[in-house]
Amino acid sequence: MLRTQPQPLVRPTNTPLPRAVLKFLLNNGLLIALVIEIAIFATASPEIFLSTGNLFTVLRISATTGITVAFYTIALIAGQIDLSTAQVGAVTAVIFAWMFAILEWPLELSFVLAMAFAALLGLINSWLVIRVKIPSLIATLALGTLCYGLAISVIQSNSTTGLIRLNRPPLRDIINTEIVGIPATVILMFAVYTIIYILLNHTRLGAHLYALGGNPQAARLNGIQDKRLVRFALMFTAMSAGFTAIMIAGRGLSAGAATPVGGVLGGPLVAAIFSGVGLSGGSGRIERTLIGVIFLAVLTSGMSILNVSPFARSMIEGLAFVFAILIDSVRQRIETR
């Protein structure tokens, strides 16, 4: 009858040395790049760049985008690309400013309602993706346009300057709170990354997110609640975008339609790609996202310390981004080979 025969493995698991080295470099490229980057800025301007003040600056810049990017990474892992974060953030901040500064509602109420509004926007995104079955990329781009329009209309009916002033007392103090000398936002960022790390690697929810991004069909056939996961990912991305935008607005004491989340190449999508999370879904590691976020923050602060011209600055940012996506595509090709 049929008897089992020992069968050679189709693919040897031990890769030859050069490949292994290449793989190590590609997998840890960003970390190596970060070290090199820090070394360059440190030699160029040791006394300013290596000061504690600058360390906090870097961390504060990281925290500003980092929280959104963290949730963004979750969405990318689940195979969802959200292009509406900038506009969702803007409209959330504007609505917050309207409630808080113009209607003079209490801070807590304004904040909770604004976050609920952001959650609603995420819900609409997920409705478009799940029910109408539109790819997330397009659905979110469309909703983003709508949000931009909403933000502008709220601003224009309440202000002539294109900004809503936000100088009611408790806000800025809360945002600039420090806990044992460390800005609260920085602590919050690290807390968010820790929780998401555990969520992705050690809970069923995380396992399901990876499965959904890796093979939606297989996930569904194995009883994974795909719709709930998409809703979860897009709602949290929207809420974190809203949260970040409110923080930025609160720090700058005004909310506008163009609340920026970075420079020319700002935006969590860019940051997430930069960290090598990849766009295909089903893979990506949150710790890499954190390194990517810090890398970009170091770049921003380093260049402003060195007084780099805006020309060179946007060029460097652009090139770094192109370089990052090229590296990512090479890594993917090597991994799937």
Partner: peptide, 22 residues
């Protein structure tokens, strides 16, 4: 008001996307 136009444009985009999907 010009802002209304922005909102309508956004709605048009969302609508166009839905029609494409249907």
């Amino acid at each position: 008001a010009p802002a209304v136009w922005l909102v309508i444009k956004g709605l048009a985009f969302v609508g166009a996307v839905i029609i494409d999907a249907v």
